[in-house]
């Protein structure tokens, strides 16, 4: 029983990170109908911003940690907006395949210029937040896990409020539902798309730091695997569906952690894809997705 709870906690804290990344995939898909493969690399950039930002503040303090987190989120938001402006906006109206290939190109550019500038060797991520662990009944909780879950929950609640309670959030949903009608009420779709990239990239940046707190070895290719799993999570929840991405992320994190702790642990990276195949066979639109007919 205690192991079950322990693994659940570990799984939820991993899943919360997948969820943060998955939200960016799903939001961008919502407004532009394509998968931004470079999204996973913003996660990596977030971790490196945390690494360098961590040198500027006293280590192991809550205030310093949150400051670095905010810095990394802001940096990733700006980078996400710039990427959209330079790489994707010129392709507005082009076939989706062209945009997808461009996204893969941007992803490779970030990964390998990362290796060029920062080197390929892994670096040890600093202790941004006060480190420690304590027992909660039979379960061992690390303060980093609390930070991960706390920050992830706050960000998701914040996102929910932005999407449902603000003018720009409602505009985001309007653009996702019908870009043409959105223009006809006076929404500047480009502004909304930039905002969406900024928001999604900020979440990926936060995800990068939270991931590095628990797996403190970072390198320029670190985004690839978590990014792929978060993409699976987004599809699993129903691509374009925001609560679906959060649910998908948590699910993948928990399942992966349980498998990792079992006799099948060798297959823990494969399990996300097995879950994906299973869900897509049973519910092709994803867990919370709705079956829609693609309009031509």
């Amino acid at each position: 029983m205690s192991e079950f709870l322990q693994q659940l906690l570990n799984g939820l804290s991993l899943g919360a990170i997948y969820a943060l990344i998955a939200l960016g995939y799903t939001m961008v898909y919502g407004v532009l109908r394509f998968i931004n493969f470079a999204h996973a690399d913003l996660f990596m950039v977030g971790a490196f911003l945390g690494y360098f930002g961590g040198r500027l503040v006293p280590s192991g303090t809550l205030v310093g940690g949150l400051g670095v987190l905010a810095l990394a989120m802001a940096g990733c938001a700006v980078l996400g907006i710039v990427i959209e402006r330079l790489a994707y906006r010129p392709l507005r109206g082009a076939p989706t395949l062209n945009v997808l290939i461009t996204a893969i190109g941007v992803s490779l550019l970030l990964e390998y210029s990362g290796q060029l500038v920062l080197g390929a060797a892994p670096r040890t991520f600093p202790d941004l937040f006060p480190a420690g662990r304590f027992n909660l009944g039979p379960v061992v909780v690390s303060t980093n896990q609390l930070v991960v879950i706390g920050v992830a929950v706050l960000l998701m609640v914040g996102l929910e409020l932005i999407v449902h309670r603000t003018r720009i959030g409602t505009a985001m949903r309007a653009v996702a539902l019908n870009p043409r009608a959105a223009q006809l009420v006076g929404i500047n779709n480009d502004v909304v798309i930039s905002f969406t990239f900024g928001l999604g990239s900020a979440l990926a940046g936060a995800g990068g730091i939270l991931y590095a707190l628990n797996y403190p070895s970072i390198d320029p290719l670190m985004g690839v695997m978590p990014g792929l799993k978060a993409f699976v999570a987004a599809v699993l929840g129903g691509i374009g569906n925001i609560p679906g991405a959060a649910l998908g992320g948590l699910l993948i994190g928990v399942v992966e952690t349980y498998v990792g702790g079992s006799a099948w642990s060798t297959y823990k990276d494969a399990i996300a894809f097995a879950v994906l195949i299973l869900v897509l066979l049973l519910r092709p639109a994803g867990l919370l997705g709705r079956v829609t007919v693609e309009k031509v």
Partner: peptide, 25 residues
């Protein structure tokens, strides 16, 4: 103003939200 062919209301938004979007500017 343009009321487009096929109405193009924002299907997942409420009536209130649709009207609020109409007043976006």
């Amino acid at each position: 103003g343009h009321v487009p062919e096929g109405r193009m209301v924002f299907a997942n938004l409420t009536v209130a939200e649709n009207l609020a979007m109409g007043a976006y500017l």
